[in-house]
Design a protein around this nucleic acid. Structure first.
Lengths: 251, 251
DNA sequence: GTTTCAATGTCGATT
DNA sequence: AATCGACGTTGAAAC
């Protein structure tokens, strides 16, 4: 990983065109060739970037000054770490390109720091508590969460527009489609509505109803769901995990 | 901006739980307090992070070794740049917390580099979009794209839930609502469906139909659109731009 | 490989 | 503050 702190100007052309006016920024070049340009604020998203696979080429150029075009006095300067910390008469131009006609052009006017580190392969991130877990847990605990007499038909029931998270049967034997979300918003209700519309046409699923299940349900989503006679169900992840694994239960 | 290269282990607890096993990584602390942990691969997204507003506290701790609990010989070590490049008997523990019960805990076993730079406020990114352009071009070229006899009524036709991109008239004089997207996905079909539902209630627009126009239409979106009798229309951005501006046309 | 959906999404505009 | 839609989305899983 190469970390460069420099005064730089950036132009991107690809899926859109974008420009960064000259300022002091961090330029990060990762081992896979990807390039990230970060300012000292904002969130984790860089101001500008290029994803791998891409190719970086660097050249030193003379700068056209305001008074007159500069002669190419420094045209053969090396493009190593420290060459640009000078009177500012030369600049490095970094051009990052992909095979898909995307180009990121970085002009470095002054380099304050340029260091490279070997980081190696990362073991990667392990996550816990995502939607897949919720669906899995609810499938295992249909009766505990929904009540006695409820039963699972199957997870990921296929429809032409994608699988329904859960298909269950209520105590009266009627089919019920369940959409599971971590955070329940309007999109999820729309999604479930589409499934119900399609599934309701099948002879064996006529009269199917829906349950919108999530750890958190936004007011507008709840309103929309209830307007469509879809039941809302708040899921307690910790409690469900506790039921799943007795060792996690409070003593 | 503070840049630290270190062997570290990370735990995040908040909207989910996540863990990073020990490895050499970049830890970036921005001026607003946000923290990013990057590996040497992947795209611009960090492995783990904490967004501002948040608070970082750092403490030096003794490490429990495998053989026996280490005595706190280095407990009062300074937490400057070079203190951890030692036998590895001490670690820094960085705890980043927000007011919303999110916590990012970074344990630094060995620090290879620790530098801070003043970057100042960034002038920010200027974008030049594609999406709005599509709608504009289609409005100008209704007859060229849809066929002889079609005509534009107006762009951005207002409805209670937002404006429809285009309202046009087919050769038979019937009104047609067009939703324009760069990438046509299910959401866009839902959006158009809502417009059609509302507009169809107006006396002068009874029997209105819809066209879903995009540079690219995903199969599921197409399936849903056709199920609702909404016509799908693929847009050729380059060709439309060519029609728009003769200087771009092939000679 | 492509297509699909979730995301600690982020980001901006608007209510 | 909350909602909505777009994103150069990114990332991962299913097909």
């Amino acid at each position: 990983m190469r970390l460069v702190i420099a005064d730089c100007e950036v132009n991107y052309s690809g899926r859109l065109d974008a420009h960064l006016a000259p300022a002091k920024r961090l330029i990060m070049v990762k081992a896979d060739g990807s390039v990230l340009i970060h300012s000292d604020g904002g969130s984790y998203k860089p101001l500008n970037w290029m994803s791998a696979p891409c190719h970086l080429s660097i050249e030193a150029n003379s700068i056209v000054t305001t008074s007159a075009a500069a002669d190419e006095t420094d045209a053969d300067a090396p493009d190593g770490a420290d060459n640009a910390i000078d009177a500012g008469e030369t600049a490095q131009i970094w051009t990052v390109t992909t095979k898909k006609n995307e180009a990121l052009v970085i002009t470095l006017f002054r380099v304050y720091s340029d260091e490279t580190f070997e980081l190696g392969i990362d073991p990667g991130l392990e996550k816990d508590g995502v939607e897949a877990h919720l669906q899995e847990l609810l499938a295992e605990q249909v009766e505990a969460v929904l009540g006695v007499g409820w039963s699972l038909i199957r997870r990921e029931w296929p429809t032409p527009i994608g699988p329904v998270d859960l298909l269950v049967r209520d105590p009266a034997g009627q089919p019920v489609a369940i959409e599971v979300k971590r955070r329940g918003e309007i999109d999820g209700v729309e999604q479930l509505t589409r499934y119900l519309e399609l599934l309701g046409r099948q002879v064996d699923l006529q009269g199917i109803t829906g349950i919108f299940a999530a750890q958190e349900i936004k007011p507008q989503a709840r309103t929309l769901a209830e307007d469509r006679e879809i039941r809302c169900l708040l899921l307690d992840y910790d409690a469900m995990r506790g039921l799943d694994d007795p060792t996690n239960r409070l003593f």
